[in-house]
């Protein structure tokens, strides 16, 4: 098929501009980070002052950098928790609200509201709840100052933060899934009912598989949200003492006064590999299954 000249031009511009932007603002910085992760640089002076150190940053991170392993573990906890609890709960809410129950709109808006808040705000709100001395929860159970130290106890605070972050994530997943459910052809449900399937069977055997594109989106969103979690723990205590996350370590090393650009880049690269690992594996599996006859 031959395209008229103007169409070709429009096509070239529409593909070209995003490609250039993508290369300049995504691929170049990402690859530059990977490159910088093999160097030592304090960010002062030109690129000439960058010193090549091979894999030294990586070996130090794995061997003598105490916050690294806890941070990695916390990121994985965060991922598992997000997939198991808020994502599942969000889907559940979507399914419930998809049925024409009373005040459905009201519930939807109430549950979606937190999504509009930035995670920084969610962090502030969470502190009003969790503070040991002045917080709402300890006030409620009448143990102000003596109750559980939700934010300071390193065995508790990560979970407290994950719950606070879930408050927002649930609404997000609910809306994504609700949009998907609205597009399901009514005749599928009817057919299932005719075949004698109950509510759960209909969802499990018919609706869920049909919503596969949405499921992929939900999973990818969940992985991204859990691995990039940063703001909420950073406002609470700067991501220390039980709230270490890889993203925080990247920030601490690069942005703060520390300026260990190479070191921080190496942690960023590890985070990138982790995220890609999860998502690529999932996508490959999915597409492979799809190709089967």
């Amino acid at each position: 098929m031959r395209l008229p000249k103007t169409d070709k031009l429009v096509l070239a511009v529409m593909c070209g501009v995003p490609t250039v932007l993508l290369l300049a603002f995504v691929w170049f910085p990402a690859l530059a980070s990977v490159g910088l992760s093999f160097t030592s640089w304090d960010g002062i002076g030109g690129v000439g002052t960058i010193e090549w150190v091979g894999t030294r940053n990586y070996s130090q991170i794995f061997s003598i950098y105490p916050p690294f392993w806890p941070a990695l573990r916390h990121n994985l906890y965060w991922l598992a928790f997000f997939i198991l609890i808020p994502t599942t709960f969000g889907i559940f809410l979507a399914v419930v609200l998809d049925r024409a129950i009373r005040f459905s709109r009201l519930y939807q808006s109430a549950l979606y509201l937190p999504v509009m808040l930035s995670l920084v705000l969610v962090g502030f709100i969470a502190q009003l709840f969790y503070s040991q001395d002045q917080g709402f929860i300890n006030g409620l159970i009448g143990q102000q100052g003596t109750g559980p130290d939700w934010l300071g106890n390193p065995d508790l605070n990560l979970w407290a933060m994950m719950i606070a972050a879930s408050w927002r994530h649930v609404g997000y997943i609910m809306v994504l899934y609700l949009a998907g459910l609205k597009s399901v052809d009514e005749s599928l449900r009817d057919a299932a009912r005719v075949d004698g399937a109950n509510e759960w069977q209909t969802f499990r055997q018919v609706i869920f598989p049909v919503l596969k594109p949405i499921n992929v989106v939900v999973l990818v969103v969940t992985v991204i949200e859990s691995l990039r979690a940063f703001d909420i723990v950073y406002v609470v205590n700067g991501g220390k003492n039980g709230l270490e996350l890889l993203s925080v370590l990247v920030y601490d090393n690069i942005v703060g006064e520390a300026s260990r650009i190479g070191y921080g880049s190496a942690i960023g690269t590890i985070l990138l590999v982790l995220a890609l690992g999860f998502i690529v594996t999932y996508l490959v599996q999915n597409f492979r299954r799809e190709q089967r006859p």
């Binding site: 995504v26 691929w27 910088l36 960010g43 990247v250 690069i254 880049s265 960023g268 985070l271 890609l276």
Partner: peptide
């Protein structure tokens, strides 16, 4: 791209 937005964004700022 999911390359830890915080990481690359800040580094980009820094380079700029």
């Amino acid at each position: 791209m999911l390359d830890a937005e915080a990481a690359t964004l800040s580094r980009r700022n820094l380079l700029l």
